[in-house]
Computed example of a mutant assay.
Amino acid sequence: MELGLLFERAQFYYEAGGYVMPWLVLATLVLWFGLGYRAAVLRRGGNISVRVVLRREIEGRGGKARGIIEQAARDGLAVARSGGAHLRRRLDDALADHFMEIKRYRKLVGAIVAVAPVLGLLGTVTGMMETFRSLDDAALYTRNGGIAAGISQALFTTQLGLAVAIPGLVIKGFLDRKQRVIEMELAQIKDILSSRELAVSADGGEQ
C-alpha cells in the first residue's frame, strides 16, 4: 500500500514537472552512477602509509589488494623488480592507468552538478510562462493546465534541480579531495621506487 502511494506521488511529480522533468531524472541517474563509480574506485585500502604498504609488499605480506594504493604499490614493485634502465619512465607508464582511473567521470559529475540547477530554472521559467498564459486565457481551474499546474511545474523542477545539485556538490567535493590525496600517494610510490629508497631484489627480498 505504501509502495503504491509512493509510486503515485512519484508519477505525479514526474508529470507535473513538464518536459524538463525527464531530463532531470536522467541527470539524477547518471550523477549517482558517476558518484558511485568514483567512490568504488577511490578506495585507498587501509590507513597505513605508502612506505608501510611498499614494505609489506616487498616482504610478501601484502595479501589481496584492498584498494588502489595497494594495487599501485604491487604494480610499481613488479616494474622495479624487472630491472632495466629508465625506471622512472617505466613507473610512469605502469601507474598511468591508475591515474586515469581515479579521474574517470569526474568531469561528467561536475557537469551534471552545474547543469541540474539550470534545468530546474528552465522548468521554473516554463511553469511561470504557463501561469501567465493561463491568466490570459482565464483558465483558472483546469486540472491539467492553468495557474495551479504552472506553479506546480515551476516549483517541482526547481526543487528537483536543487535536490540533485546540492548533495552531488557535497559528495563531489569529498571525492575530489580524496582523489588529490591518492594522486599524491601514487606520485610518492613512484618517487620512493625510482630513488631506490626501498631497494628491491629480483627475488622479492629487500636488499
Rank of each mutant, 00 (worst) to 15 (best):
I69Y: 07
A96H: 07
R180T: 14
L24E: 09
G17R: 00
M129S: 05
R104D: 12
H98K: 15
E59R: 11
P167K: 01
V113C: 04
L169H: 07
A148D: 08
G145S: 14
L140N: 11
I112R: 02
L122G: 09
S152T: 09
A163L: 12
G76T: 05
T158E: 12
R9I: 07
R104V: 07
D176N: 06
G161H: 09
R9L: 04
I58V: 12
S201A: 14
V200L: 08
T126S: 11
A202E: 12
A78C: 05
L35W: 01
A163R: 06
D75Q: 12
A72D: 15
E206S: 06
G173T: 15
G205A: 01
A165R: 11
E101Q: 14
V25W: 08
D191A: 13
L175C: 03
A27H: 04
S195L: 02
Q71H: 10
L121G: 15
R106Q: 07
A73D: 08
L77A: 02
A138Q: 15
I48Q: 13
A65D: 15
K190M: 14
A10N: 10
R196N: 15
G4V: 03
W32R: 00
L35Y: 02
A138N: 15
V50N: 13
K64M: 08
G4K: 02
R56Q: 13
A114K: 07
L186V: 05
F132T: 02
T28H: 04
G127N: 08
G150F: 01
V20W: 04
F156S: 08
W23T: 11
L193D: 13
G168I: 03
Q179M: 04
F33I: 11
A138R: 15
E185K: 02
M128N: 05
A94Q: 09
Q207K: 06
G168L: 03
L121S: 15
V164Q: 08
A85M: 14
W32L: 01
A199V: 10
A116L: 02
A199E: 09
D203H: 00
D93A: 01
G18F: 02
Y13Q: 02
N144C: 01
A111L: 11
R196A: 08
I68N: 05
L108Q: 09
Y141I: 05
R180W: 12
T142I: 00
G120W: 03
F132P: 12
D97F: 00
I48K: 07
R143F: 02
A39D: 07
Y141D: 14
L5C: 09
G123F: 01
R43N: 15
Q11M: 05
A187S: 14
A72T: 10
V53N: 07
G83A: 02
A187P: 00
S134D: 06
L108G: 10
E59F: 06
G84A: 09
